[in-house]
Nucleic acid binder design. Structure first.
Length: 424
DNA sequence: AGTCCACAGGAAGGGCAGGCGA
DNA sequence: TCGCCTGCCCTTCCTGTGGACT
């Protein structure tokens, strides 16, 4: 194990020395870490501009989204004459360029409008940032220069602080609420009702809302009053096809690395794999970026097809293992129960998961949760994509959830090992 | 057609932690 | 210090569900 070798290297270096330090820093050129760093420094990098491969990077040109860019531009243009644009509701699946286009258009608009416009972006999926009514309001207050505690104040006080802050200067405000469905799921649609009517309480400023979601059925579940005011204008972002994804990747490669950094077929493969997942550009970029990183780590200066295969495996592994590690112990016990049951080739249903879970709790001194709570945690695991569940009726023998693991065999083994580490 | 089962899942609320102002 | 507020995790209670069984 590398970690063990490094510990030995630390001990061997003696007290006060820096393990694997670089030349000029008291380096010991024989330590394994020194060789790792040195190899990295000497290797020709695959990506000369790593930032361009990042999801959050906003390029000057967004391929295959010019229609949406222009349409959104036209909707927001009234700002330039001091008018209030309509509220806009945007939906489309993950990785279809919604956030990118909105950020790009509003940034360009801000350049032209100057002080007359303030754009505020909040992502409601960011845990502990804007995922509840209170936190969203606190985040808004902060954006407008009011410091409020992250908990403790009555909600009406926060509302007041936000209204006052927005109205302190005459301005047009565009409030971008990304992943808006997460907020409504937790906080209800009352907050949207208030926000869409905020202009009635403002004397100097005007606020327009751009709501973004990848839940296509979200708008139908809203209160009709909120629906009509939030979606004065609507935009739909269709998924990219494989050819469009190739263009996106090629454009980013020009900025990040150059065509000489990849073998033929690499871009095509990344695009094809991402196109299988509802045309997700984010997935395509991730695949290419991780492929490049794997190539670099192997000391190679070109990305080959085999790096893409390895990258796909790695992305799935990392995601699942990271989620699993971050789960509370109760959730881990439920997942472990599902893993054990699926190993025995038994029908995995809520009832027998409860049995195994209760046994695990007894063995490990955990206080078992109620069936109601376990049911929610199973639904959560489903949401993370670790398991797939389906509610079925067995007639006289009741209704239940049939649970299947959606992990490859290799990943199942790794997850099982991880669970053993946690519980034994 | 009515009954039954084993849950799913919504609603309400308890208990705790953490923060604020008086 | 105390009362009040929010977030979060959880339980309790309840209604709904849908296909097999009677």
């Amino acid at each position: 194990m590398v970690a063990k070798d490094n510990v030995n290297a630390v001990n061997a270096a003696g007290p006060g020395s820096v393990p694997g330090a670089m030349p000029g820093m008291g380096a010991n050129s024989k330590t394994p870490l020194y060789r790792v760093f040195n190899q990295f420094l000497e290797a020709k990098p695959v990506f000369t501009n790593r930032d361009a491969m990042n999801i959050s990077f906003t390029p000057d040109n967004i391929p295959h989204r010019s229609k949406q860019v222009e349409e959104l531009g036209r909707m927001l243009a009234p700002v330039l004459k001091g008018g209030k644009p309509s509220n806009i509701f945007i939906y489309g699946k993950t990785g279809t360029g919604k956030t990118l286009v909105v950020k790009y258009v509003t940034a360009e608009l801000e350049k032209m409008a100057g002080d007359k416009l303030k754009v505020v972006y909040v992502n409601c999926k960011m845990k502990h940032t804007a995922d509840t009514e209170y936190r969203l309001l606190a985040q808004l207050a902060k954006e407008f220069g009011r410091d409020v505690p992250f908990t403790g104040l009555p909600t009406d006080m926060i509302y007041h602080a936000v209204f006052e802050a927005i109205d302190s200067v005459q301005q047009n405000v565009i409030l971008i609420v990304d992943e808006i469905d997460s907020l409504i799921q937790k906080a209800g649609d009352e907050i949207l009702y208030t926000l869409t009517r905020i202009n009635g309480d403002l004397k100097r400023s005007k606020v327009s809302i751009i709501g973004i979601t990848n839940d296509l059925g979200f708008i139908d579940r809203l209160d009709p009053r909120v629906r009509s005011s939030l979606s004065e204008e609507e935009m739909v972002f269709p998924p990219y096809n494989a050819v469009q994804l190739q263009d996106i990747l090629k454009e980013r490669l020009v900025l990040a690395a150059g065509k000489e950094a990849i073998d033929g077929g690499v871009v095509e493969k990344c695009a094809a794999l991402a196109a299988q997942e509802h045309g997700d550009a984010r997935r395509a970029l991730d695949l290419l970026r991780v492929s490049g990183e794997l190539a670099e780590r192997a000391g190679e200066s070109r990305i080959a097809i085999r790096h893409v295969d390895a990258a796909q495996e790695k992305i799935d592994h990392d995601r699942v293992l990271e989620i699993t590690k971050a789960q509370p112990k109760q959730s881990q016990a439920i997942l472990y129960a599902i893993l054990q049951l699926s190993e025995k080739d038994k029908d995995v249903e809520t009832g027998n998961v409860m049995d195994v879970y209760n046994r695990l709790c007894n063995e490990h001194g955990l206080k078992p949760l109620t069936q109601r709570r376990v049911s929610d945690l199973i639904a959560e695991l489903d949401m993370f994509g670790i398991i797939r569940t389906q509610v079925i009726s067995k007639g006289r023998y009741g209704r239940t959830r049939v649970i299947n693991l959606s992990l490859s065999d290799a990943l199942k083994e790794k997850t099982k090992l991880l669970m053993k580490e946690v519980f034994y």
